[in-house]
Simulated scan of single mutants.
Amino acid sequence: MKYLQAIGYSEASWKTFTTGLREFFCWLEKQKILSLEKVSESDIENFYSYQQERPNNMTGGTLSESRITIHMYVIKLLFCYLEDTEQLQINPMSNLDYTHSYKRTRENLLSLADIEKLYKACDTVKQRAILGIIYGCGLRRQEAAKLNVRDIHFKSGLLYVRQGKGGRKRTVPLNTTVLKDLKEYYYNERSGELNGNDTDSIEAFMINKHGRRMRGRTYNVEVKKLIKAAGLNTQITLHHFRHAIATHLLESGMKTGHVKDFLGHQSIETTQTYLHLTTTQMKKTTSYGTETIPD
Rank of each mutant, 00 (worst) to 15 (best):
F154W: 04
A244E: 12
Y288A: 03
G289M: 06
K180T: 13
D151N: 09
L158S: 09
S267L: 03
K155Q: 08
I268L: 10
N175E: 02
L194T: 06
L174W: 00
N175G: 03
Y187V: 15
D200H: 00
F241Q: 05
G157H: 13
Y288N: 07
T286E: 12
I152D: 14
K283W: 11
I236P: 02
A229K: 02
I245C: 13
T285D: 13
T292A: 04
F205M: 12
G264Y: 08
V259Y: 07
K183W: 13
H265I: 10
F262Y: 14
M282D: 15
M282V: 15
V259S: 01
F205K: 09
Q281I: 10
K283C: 08
L250P: 00
G166I: 06
V149I: 09
T273Y: 12
H258Y: 14
V221D: 00
L174P: 00
K165M: 11
Q163P: 12
G211F: 05
E291W: 06
A145V: 02
T271H: 08
G167H: 13
T290M: 14
M206A: 05
K169L: 08
A246W: 14
T290G: 11
E184V: 14
L275D: 05
N208K: 04
H239G: 15
R215M: 08
T237Q: 13
L277D: 03
K180V: 13
R213I: 00
T177V: 06
F241W: 08
V223C: 03
E222S: 11
N195I: 03
I293Q: 00
P173Q: 01
R170Y: 10
H258M: 13
I268T: 10
L263G: 04
A229W: 01
L179P: 06
K155A: 01
T218D: 02
K225T: 02
T218C: 03
T270F: 08
M214W: 00
T273R: 12
S201F: 00
K146V: 04
S267A: 05
I152P: 14
F262D: 08
G257S: 13
P173V: 01
R170K: 09
